[in-house]
Design a protein around this nucleic acid. Structure first.
Length: 477
RNA sequence: CGGGACGUAGCACAGCUUGGUAGUGCGCUUGGUUCGGGACCAAGAGGUCGAGGGUUCGAAUCCCUUCGUUCCGACCA
């Protein structure tokens, strides 16, 4: 049990980066295409994304969000309207210049993000306070011409949702950014079993064109942080540039306030690197496309397959995602295969079980097996899925907790981020200190966390001046 | 965008130094025996050697170009 049964996967501690790409491919989450940075989301990987979509659509709709779909392309002239935004994205756009056989005078940018499309549309449909608020979201892919790419973590094209909301007041727009940040945090605790650090980005790390950027940050097993989602409060900057105005009850014309927010298929990368082990993927139960894999033993024997099928039907009826592998592979092969794919529960049914009126259920997360009487299967599956989720979340949270370390000097900070984890630092707020840390340690400010108000010092760890901000620094993907 | 490594059957690789019939293991197909931790036997199928150009009687092998993958940096979800 303790040996690595699959030689094909590189051990996590020997080469984490290689382990990661091995898992991506061996678990059949993705495949490479012939264009750099554009990957194929295979059915199993895409199904994980669909679970995330289902969860978020439910939560979004509960706060009044409507799904829409915007065009794939943005005329360059339109894109260029907001200066700061353009400067943030210009180096990484893919641009179409030929249509049919003729040159396009105003080249079309393949969207790297859709702020300007939403703004242009909002300008047309908003004129009165009665038209506000609007809470739009779209599920789509975006293209960014990245220099180096890795499956799910950084792609030239990736799938995401982008919410673009617009309100009469600053307070509502900022609150929307914070509300969705909480939804993302819940996504972590309820679906992905990932404890995020959430908080406000420093000015240096803020999104191009935003007034405030918030993020959820996950800590990978190798101690590097992964920004897993962001929300932004935009103020009226875009509205001014794009001429979005509304007339208030007092007859005065004003610019509305905007927010935007998004998570991407990068979340799949988070799941892999937070929970995976040397035998492959370990999927949190509620995001797993298959929660229970049924493996019949000696399936050619009388009664085994019919029993397996009846258990499958019972579990499906009880609302679980379950599949039965009745292929002619050996059981041992199937065990290894579904471990690699991270299926949370494996249900074995063989001649001995049939005789005793029981099944065997094994947990992916810890390898433990239990015998379950036939009549208790639904209850036990339900119990084990919940227990698995809790255990995975608890483990990840414990890892996070032990990897947030208070530092009072640059040297201490360097040591912490080199070993992996967050260095928690008091900061004066000066950009110069942040730049210096980046230069000396390659770590960046991840965020100023909500919910950590423990001021353990009053001096900036870099310059020694008065400091009242708590910042987490880490090396990041 | 800089530096390194690598592209040969679905996968992992050998062959290249010293040019001369395209190989090995796993996987795949068919049949049979198996089945509680990646089974076994037998018979098969599968490759324009990443692409383009050059040298040569002859190129997987030598030269040039290019595309892709990957790792390490700089930049970003």
């Amino acid at each position: 049990m303790e040996t690595n049964k699959n030689e094909a996967i590189t051990s996590r501690d020997i080469d984490f980066a290689k382990w990661y790409t091995d898992v991506c491919r061996k678990a059949e989450l993705m495949d490479y295409s012939s264009v750099k940075g554009f990957i194929i989301y295979r059915p199993y990987g895409y199904a994980i994304w669909e679970q995330i979509q289902n969860y978020l659509n439910g939560r979004f709709k509960a706060i009044g969000v409507q799904n829409v779909y915007m065009p794939l392309v943005i005329p360059e002239s339109l894109f260029n309207k907001e200066k700061e935004h353009v400067e943030g994205f210009a180096p990484e756009t893919l641009i179409a210049t030929i249509g049919g056989k003729s040159k396009i005078d105003d080249p079309l940018i393949i969207r790297p993000t859709s702020e300007v499309l939403f703004c242009e549309h909002y300008a047309r449909i908003i004129s009165s306070h009665r038209d506000l608020p609007k809470l739009y979201n779209q599920w789509c892919s975006v293209v960014r011409w990245e220099k180096t790419t890795r499956p799910f973590l950084r792609g030239s094209e990736f799938l995401w949702q982008e919410g673009h909301t617009i309100f009469a007041t600053e307070q509502e727009a900022r609150q929307n950014a914070l509300d969705v940040l909480d939804i993302y945090d819940d996504l972590g605790s309820e679906l992905l079993a990932i404890p995020f650090v959430k908080g406000l980005k420093t000015d240096k790390e803020r999104f191009a064109g935003a007034r405030e950027t918030y993020s959820i940050e996950a800590l990978m097993h190798d101690g590097k942080a992964l920004q897993s989602g962001t929300t932004h409060y935009f103020g009226t900057g875009f509205a001014e540039v794009f001429g979005i105005t509304y007339q208030g009850k007092d007859n005065v014309l004003r610019n509305p306030h905007q927010a935007s927010w998004g998570v991407s298929t990068r979340l799949i990368g988070s799941i892999i690197m937070v929970h995976g082990d040397d035998n492959g993927l370990v999927l949190p139960p509620f995001v797993a496309p298959t929660q229970v894999i049924i493996i019949p033993i000696q399936q050619s024997k009388e009664g085994i397959l019919t029993e397996a099928e009846s258990i499958k039907a019972r579990l499906e009826k009880a609302g679980f995602r379950v599949s039965l592998d009745d292929s002619d592979r050996t059981p041992g092969w199937k065990y290894a295969e579904y471990e690699m794919k991270g299926v949370p529960l494996r249900l074995e049914i063989g001649p001995r079980d049939l005789e005793k009126g029981q099944v065997v259920i094994a947990r992916r997360v810890n390898g433990k097996k239990v015998f379950v009487a036939n009549e208790n299967i639904e209850n036990e599956v339900n119990h084990l899925l919940n227990e698995t989720h809790d255990e995975m979340y608890r483990k990840a949270k414990e890892f996070l907790k032990t990897h947030i370390i208070e530092v009072k000097t640059l040297e201490e900070l360097k040591k912490v981020v080199d070993e992996g984890g967050y260095a928690k630092m008091m900061w004066c707020g000066e950009r110069g200190c942040e730049d210096k840390i980046k230069e000396m340690t390659a770590a960046t400010a991840r965020c100023m966390p909500h919910g950590d108000h423990n001021h353990f010092d009053n001096k900036c760890a870099v310059c020694g001046k008065k400091a009242d901000k708590i910042v987490y620094f880490a090396k990041a993907y």
